[in-house]
Amino acid sequence: MNGALWIWRNFRFLLPGDWELLQFTRRPGEGRCAWADRCAFRLEFVWRAVPGPPDFDRMMGDYAAKLETEGARKLRRERRDAWHGIAAEQGGRPISRFGAYFDRESCVVELVFPWPEERSPALERAVLAAVREEPPDAAGRRRWRAFGLDLRVDGRLDLAECRVAPGSAEFRFADERGRRIVRCRRLGLRPFWMKTGVADWVRGQTRDWRAARETSERREGHEVFRREGDAPTGFLERALRGRKCAGMEAWICPADDRLYAREWRGPAPFAEDEGRRGALGCAGCGGLGA
């Protein structure tokens, strides 16, 4: 399958190119995502962190019984490699569900395929075979890839916010106390709102930073503008925690004409590390690879 790569909550998926992520949850413990083609939902990804591998035989039996009481018909147990599945008809449509346990993430994952018409075993097999855990890299950075953003961020940060609107996507990662923050954005529809160049846009976004240093470089066909400095802090915060360093880099990807921006804030060692090793890439052109 010549598909698109998605990475969410440390799981990677290879899905048909016209499937888009329309629903998502940020919580790492338990949540769901749903992808749709242009007409209907096609795949649901449900996860739940568990202390150890579950008893799949019993779980599938209970699950089949539950589906039967919910009106599912023609239930059939199936197996695809590590995936335990149940195929059924629900509401007059075929639906197949597969579950598996992933050791590294200590997580039970369920994939639900609500088929619009006929079930496609080949597509189902291809999607299941491509599901993998995405381990952190050697520096402990986690990769996320969705909504045209491909990024690597410090593994100690959680996804605190994800905002998606037409022509705009934003991920904000933060630690528990909100002291370390990484924010990645991808903004489209530029002719309607962007009246300046990238450098001026970055300066406008970081107007209150002090002791700012600016650099500009060409990276893989992208003109990247970077600004680093001290983010404003209150007197007490500065006295207790020291400087809050910040940085931002931005560029326009020629492939999709969108503005990409990555911003980080935190104590000096964090900001230095994030500035040096953090990465944001354009999923569209595959450039500035994360």
Binding site: F41, R48, I95, E110
Partner: peptide, 9 residues
């Protein structure tokens, strides 16, 4: 399968 598994929308 998962505790709060819901039928797809």
């Amino acid at each position: 399968m998962t505790a709060k598994s819901v039928p797809p929308t």
